[in-house]
């Protein structure tokens, strides 16, 4: 079944247009779409538009309804968005953050169930030891993980993740995307993730969109999008793409092009 269809999406900041007629591949249950592109390509802008935080023109059709026709509160119940900026360094405790978020959103769970849920989530994300340490004392990667936990607290159907792994080490990168993969498959959800790590994108996404200067340069299955030519055109690096042992292409970046 068609879950998300995005067509002719345009975004303006003031009078400057930053997204031009963006169209995404149709997404179905279980899909993970990777959003690739250089800095300032418009990935975060697209994420914000999809999340409903950013004004936009065009069509976002979700389960056969236009996003504009869905009451905002319903929309935000289905869609969780993890912004690129992690939670700021205040003396807030991660546990407090998730707890107050759940209560501010009127999630109707008993205290006990909510605590259990937060605990499981933290354990899964390696935050059990950090749950009661103020945000300012956490490392950058841990703060990013807290941000991810915040997005996951509602069991959303659609996950929008803006560079969820940019601050994470090799181990946690994979744990996080494994978790996303598991959620998407178990709950028949979809996920869209902006990523700078091409290998990670090739490994975990089944569809990709390549964005540059606010326009879609290529989109579709991984092997169609991750070609040496596309990478050269968009990222300005010379690269070799080879089939890998694990079933996804391996990208070897050779040198930047001048």
């Amino acid at each position: 079944m068609n879950r998300l269809r995005v067509k002719n999406l345009n975004v303006f900041y003031g009078k400057t247009q930053r997204l031009f007629d963006v169209q995404l591949p149709d997404l179905e249950d279980g899909d993970i779409l990777g959003l690739l592109g250089p800095n300032a390509a418009g990935k975060s802008t697209l994420m914000r538009a999809l999340s409903g935080v950013q004004k936009h023109q065009g069509q976002i059709i979700y389960k056969d309804n236009h996003q504009g026709d869905i009451p905002l509160s319903d929309w935000h119940r289905e869609v969780a968005y993890m912004p690129q900026t992690p939670p700021q360094e205040s003396s807030l405790l991660p546990f407090e953050l998730l707890w107050s978020a759940a209560r501010a959103l009127n999630l109707t769970t008993s205290d006990q169930k909510l605590a259990k849920k937060i605990e499981l989530l933290f354990k899964r994300l390696g935050l059990a030891e950090s749950a009661m340490s103020p945000m300012y004392s956490l490392s950058g990667g841990k703060r990013q993980l807290v941000g991810l936990a915040l997005a996951l607290i509602r069991n959303p159907y659609m996950l929008l993740l803006d560079e969820p792994t940019s601050a994470l080490d090799l181990h946690w990168r994979m744990i996080v995307l494994d978790l996303v993969h598991e959620r998407v498959n178990r709950q028949d959800g979809i996920a869209i993730a902006a990523l700078h790590d091409l290998e990670l994108a090739a490994r975990y996404c089944n569809k990709l969109v390549l964005l540059a200067h606010g326009k879609v340069v290529a989109s579709g299955p991984v092997s169609d999008v991750l070609t040496a030519d596309n990478i050269a055109a968009v990222f300005k690096v010379k690269a070799k793409v080879e089939p890998g042992e694990l079933g996804y292409p391996i990208i070897q970046v050779l040198e930047p092009m001048l």
């Binding site: 969780a80 941000g147 997005a151």
Partner: peptide, 13 residues
Amino acid sequence: LLRAGEAQAQSLG
């Protein structure tokens, strides 16, 4: 919740 920053609070709708 706002003590985590405006972007986070806003992202929850």
